[in-house]
């Protein structure tokens, strides 16, 4: 390939790559590296600083659970009675999907259970408790359905078979999550 001489032509091809332009490009590349590092740092910090919470999943449907490289998790707190609404304001229409709510969970034995649904982030309150942000996924059969962004567990190599067997268990699995003081939530592992 012949090397371009940037000075020999100006109009059809873009102008020569000035130092400033290369610096700006470098800045853009560094910003992208920082985005990835930021995602990772947030996850690490959440695991390190966060409150450890154990949730129980609903028994997994063996025909449905395994999606290639991840399992789909459905928690006991994914379906809650509307009566758990604690305000502020009157209970909203949970049939409208996409609303942002907050679910307060507190330990009930080894597993944590939901104690209230809030419209805005409440104080974690007395005793051990954690606040999980959630999105309303509709209401039917008398329960509010919620998504926490914790519904996928990407499988480490070779554990697919073992988890597939969860389809046969009837009590569900224990899932460890971390809730950071600044509100981010991270799934740590499935027992």
């Amino acid at each position: 390939m012949t090397t371009n001489q940037p000075t020999s032509h100006t109009s059809p091809a873009p102008a020569a790559w000035s130092r400033g332009r290369l610096y700006r490009l470098g800045g853009l590349a560094i910003a992208q590296v920082l985005v990835l590092l930021g995602i990772a740092a947030l996850a690490w910090a959440t695991a390190g600083q966060g409150q450890l919470v154990q949730l129980r999943t609903r028994p997994l449907d063996p025909r449905d659970a395994l999606y290639g490289d991840f399992v789909r998790l459905h928690y006991a707190i994914s379906d809650l009675p509307p009566a758990l609404w604690r305000g502020p304001g009157p209970r909203p229409d949970f049939g409208r999907t996409g609303q942002r709510v907050f679910v307060r969970v507190a330990p009930a034995g080894a597993v944590w259970a939901a104690t209230g649904i809030y419209g805005s982030r409440p104080a974690a309150g007395p005793g051990p408790a954690a606040i999980l942000p959630a999105t309303v996924d509709g209401q039917w059969a008398g329960t509010v359905h919620l998504r926490y962004g914790l519904e996928r567990f990407y499988l480490p190599e070779g554990t697919g078979r073992r988890l597939e067997a969860t389809g046969r268990d009837t009590s569900g699995r224990l899932v460890r999550i971390a809730v950071a003081p600044w509100g981010t939530v991270r799934l740590l592992g499935v027992e």
Partner: peptide, 18 residues
Amino acid sequence: AFGGGIVLTGQMYHLVSY
């Protein structure tokens, strides 16, 4: 690589986006 990195980092920490 940036796009791939976002997706794979998300998977690494089991982040689900809606």
